[in-house]
Amino acid sequence: MNDNPQHETSPATAQSIVHMEKVNKYFGSLHVMQDIDLEITAGEVVVIVGASGSGKSTLIRCVNGLEEFQSGRIVVDGNELTPHGKGGKSLQTIRTEVGMVFQQFNLFPHLSVHANVTLAPEKVRGLDSGKARQIADRLLERVGITDQADKYPGQLSGGQQQRVALARALAMEPRLMLFDEPTSALDPEMIGEVLDAMRELANEGMTMMIVTHEMGFAREVADRVIFVHGGRIVEEGTPQDVFDHPQHERTQSFLSRVLKH
């Protein structure tokens, strides 16, 4: 509970962590994000669902500037990103404040598990190696990777790698965590352990944006579910609203396809 002291400083007043306003993005002539408006407050867990190619990954990748957008504005915890990747200093700040977990883990294969976690705290935050090691030990223990800190990522299972990736992102003490289909590359028996770690994080009050196909998980942890189709936010609401009483025909047909099995 003491792991993220910053959350104790966000009391009653809902503090905006992500503010998106009329965000548009094109891949060539393809309009992949259309007038996206989105407001996420501190402590909220938002799950984004939609068919592949709907623009949901692109949406969260815009939040930390891995994708540029062409018009609109994005403000992340008070730092503004402007169109065409002109974030400058604030882009760097946003990236240090926003953690990301990728579908393919993207651990650094040439570094030990331990060094994967300590790299950014040392190089970005300027922590000495003793302090960084403390943080890494604590986080690795928290995600259940204790006696493997000296191994290399290639020696771990997919589920273990993804939990290391989570610890690596948390080591920067982010204000917001982005998850881009974190379990889609995992063998079925390893999905649970990653979802457990994410659930624990959500319970501790972390602000999270999650793109996932795990509808059961979404229903359980999400404060809000957003359904994206064709680059637009078609429908949003509580999990009950969206999953049990979808208003939009697109949402209904999507859910009938994914909930069938």
Binding site: R95, V98, F108, H110, L119, K123, V124
Partner: peptide
Amino acid sequence: DRGQREAGLSLGLSRVDTFRYIIWPQ
């Protein structure tokens, strides 16, 4: 892999540091 660069940048490493500590050694 492109994901290596994205992982480095998403951790807040500068482009130069991402290259120096992540891309170049590999």
